[in-house]
Amino acid sequence: MTMPVLNKKKSKGLYIVIFGCGRLGSGIANWLSSKGNSVVVVDRREEAFSSLSFEFTGFTIIGDATELDTLETAKVEKADVVLALTPDDNTNIMTALISKEYFEVPRVIARVYDPNNIDMFSEFGVEIICPTLLAVKEIQNTLGFIGGDEG
Protein backbone atom coordinates (compact mmCIF):
# COMPACT_ATOMS: atom_id res chain seq x y z
CA MET A 1 0.00 0.00 0.00
CA THR A 2 1.27 3.49 -0.87
CA MET A 3 1.33 5.77 2.14
CA PRO A 4 0.20 9.37 1.60
CA VAL A 5 3.13 11.72 2.18
CA LEU A 6 2.14 15.01 3.79
CA ASN A 7 4.74 17.32 2.30
CA LYS A 8 5.05 15.65 -1.12
CA LYS A 9 4.60 17.89 -4.14
CA LYS A 10 1.21 16.94 -5.53
CA SER A 11 -1.48 18.07 -7.90
CA LYS A 12 -4.21 18.03 -5.27
CA GLY A 13 -4.30 18.16 -1.49
CA LEU A 14 -5.04 15.33 0.89
CA TYR A 15 -8.17 14.87 2.99
CA ILE A 16 -7.08 14.79 6.63
CA VAL A 17 -9.21 14.33 9.75
CA ILE A 18 -7.78 15.45 13.10
CA PHE A 19 -9.38 14.42 16.39
CA GLY A 20 -8.56 16.85 19.21
CA CYS A 21 -8.13 20.59 18.76
CA GLY A 22 -5.72 21.34 21.60
CA ARG A 23 -2.37 23.06 21.12
CA LEU A 24 -0.97 20.17 19.04
CA GLY A 25 -4.13 19.44 17.03
CA SER A 26 -4.77 23.08 16.14
CA GLY A 27 -1.11 23.70 15.29
CA ILE A 28 -1.01 20.72 12.94
CA ALA A 29 -4.40 21.68 11.44
CA ASN A 30 -3.18 25.22 10.71
CA TRP A 31 -0.01 23.90 9.08
CA LEU A 32 -1.75 21.21 7.01
CA SER A 33 -4.43 23.57 5.72
CA SER A 34 -1.79 26.16 4.77
CA LYS A 35 -0.27 23.45 2.55
CA GLY A 36 -3.48 23.16 0.51
CA ASN A 37 -4.97 20.09 2.18
CA SER A 38 -8.64 19.72 3.08
CA VAL A 39 -8.62 19.44 6.87
CA VAL A 40 -11.43 18.48 9.23
CA VAL A 41 -10.93 19.11 12.95
CA VAL A 42 -13.14 17.32 15.45
CA ASP A 43 -13.43 18.27 19.13
CA ARG A 44 -16.05 17.88 21.84
CA ARG A 45 -15.70 21.52 22.89
CA GLU A 46 -16.67 24.32 20.52
CA GLU A 47 -14.33 26.75 22.29
CA ALA A 48 -11.38 24.53 21.32
CA PHE A 49 -11.68 25.77 17.73
CA SER A 50 -10.65 29.28 18.81
CA SER A 51 -7.06 27.96 18.73
CA LEU A 52 -7.30 27.66 14.94
CA SER A 53 -5.71 30.55 13.08
CA PHE A 54 -7.69 32.99 10.94
CA GLU A 55 -6.00 31.51 7.86
CA PHE A 56 -7.28 28.00 8.65
CA THR A 57 -9.12 26.73 5.57
CA GLY A 58 -11.09 23.70 6.59
CA PHE A 59 -13.96 22.30 8.60
CA THR A 60 -14.75 22.05 12.28
CA ILE A 61 -17.09 19.44 13.74
CA ILE A 62 -18.26 19.33 17.34
CA GLY A 63 -18.49 15.70 18.37
CA ASP A 64 -17.19 12.78 20.37
CA ALA A 65 -14.27 11.05 18.64
CA THR A 66 -15.37 7.66 19.99
CA GLU A 67 -18.81 7.79 18.38
CA LEU A 68 -19.28 6.24 14.96
CA ASP A 69 -21.70 9.00 13.94
CA THR A 70 -19.01 11.61 14.46
CA LEU A 71 -16.55 9.68 12.31
CA GLU A 72 -19.17 9.30 9.59
CA THR A 73 -20.02 13.03 9.70
CA ALA A 74 -16.30 13.75 9.30
CA LYS A 75 -16.26 11.38 6.27
CA VAL A 76 -13.39 9.38 7.77
CA GLU A 77 -13.97 6.71 5.11
CA LYS A 78 -12.61 9.18 2.53
CA ALA A 79 -9.63 10.31 4.60
CA ASP A 80 -6.06 9.88 3.37
CA VAL A 81 -4.78 10.48 6.90
CA VAL A 82 -6.33 10.42 10.38
CA LEU A 83 -4.58 11.99 13.36
CA ALA A 84 -5.84 11.01 16.84
CA LEU A 85 -4.50 13.82 19.04
CA THR A 86 -6.94 14.10 21.95
CA PRO A 87 -5.48 14.33 25.49
CA ASP A 88 -6.77 10.82 26.30
CA ASP A 89 -4.93 7.62 25.28
CA ASN A 90 -8.09 5.48 25.38
CA THR A 91 -9.96 7.88 23.07
CA ASN A 92 -6.97 7.99 20.73
CA ILE A 93 -6.64 4.22 20.53
CA MET A 94 -10.34 3.70 19.92
CA THR A 95 -10.51 6.41 17.22
CA ALA A 96 -7.31 5.19 15.59
CA LEU A 97 -8.45 1.56 15.53
CA ILE A 98 -11.89 2.36 14.12
CA SER A 99 -10.26 4.53 11.44
CA LYS A 100 -7.76 1.81 10.57
CA GLU A 101 -9.89 -1.32 10.84
CA TYR A 102 -13.43 -0.19 10.05
CA PHE A 103 -12.85 2.71 7.64
CA GLU A 104 -9.55 1.35 6.21
CA VAL A 105 -7.80 4.73 6.29
CA PRO A 106 -4.36 4.30 4.67
CA ARG A 107 -2.44 6.26 7.30
CA VAL A 108 -3.39 6.65 10.95
CA ILE A 109 -1.21 8.45 13.50
CA ALA A 110 -2.00 8.63 17.22
CA ARG A 111 -0.54 10.46 20.17
CA VAL A 112 0.15 8.21 23.17
CA TYR A 113 1.04 9.64 26.57
CA ASP A 114 1.72 6.36 28.37
CA PRO A 115 4.68 4.47 26.82
CA ASN A 116 3.12 1.23 28.13
CA ASN A 117 0.36 1.62 25.50
CA ILE A 118 2.72 1.82 22.53
CA ASP A 119 2.84 -1.93 21.83
CA MET A 120 -0.93 -2.18 21.76
CA PHE A 121 -1.20 0.66 19.18
CA SER A 122 1.63 -0.71 17.04
CA GLU A 123 0.03 -4.15 16.77
CA PHE A 124 -2.79 -2.61 14.74
CA GLY A 125 -0.55 -0.73 12.33
CA VAL A 126 -1.17 2.63 13.94
CA GLU A 127 1.81 5.00 13.87
CA ILE A 128 2.69 6.42 17.28
CA ILE A 129 3.88 9.78 18.55
CA CYS A 130 4.76 9.52 22.24
CA PRO A 131 5.68 12.91 23.80
CA THR A 132 7.08 11.18 26.90
CA LEU A 133 9.51 9.05 24.89
CA LEU A 134 10.44 11.99 22.66
CA ALA A 135 11.28 14.04 25.76
CA VAL A 136 13.28 11.15 27.26
CA LYS A 137 15.30 10.78 24.05
CA GLU A 138 15.92 14.51 23.85
CA ILE A 139 17.13 14.65 27.46
CA GLN A 140 19.32 11.58 26.87
CA ASN A 141 20.85 13.30 23.85
CA THR A 142 21.48 16.49 25.80
CA LEU A 143 22.98 14.68 28.79
CA GLY A 144 25.01 12.44 26.52
CA PHE A 145 26.48 15.50 24.82
CA ILE A 146 27.34 17.14 28.16
CA GLY A 147 28.80 13.91 29.50
CA GLY A 148 30.87 13.43 26.34
CA ASP A 149 32.10 17.00 26.51
CA GLU A 150 33.18 16.64 30.10
CA GLY A 151 34.63 13.18 29.72
Binding site: S11, G13, S33, G36, S38, F56, T57, G58
Partner: peptide, 14 residues
Protein backbone atom coordinates in the same frame (compact mmCIF):
# COMPACT_ATOMS: atom_id res chain seq x y z
CA UNK B 1 -14.42 32.47 4.31
CA UNK B 2 -12.51 29.26 5.11
CA UNK B 3 -14.64 27.31 2.60
CA UNK B 4 -14.22 30.01 -0.07
CA UNK B 5 -10.46 29.93 0.42
CA UNK B 6 -10.33 26.12 0.40
CA UNK B 7 -12.23 25.72 -2.89
CA UNK B 8 -10.18 28.54 -4.39
CA UNK B 9 -6.95 26.81 -3.31
CA UNK B 10 -8.06 23.42 -4.69
CA UNK B 11 -9.20 24.79 -8.07
CA UNK B 12 -6.29 27.22 -8.51
CA UNK B 13 -3.98 24.26 -7.98
CA UNK B 14 -5.73 22.79 -11.03
Amino acid sequence: SSIRRLIKMIMEEQ
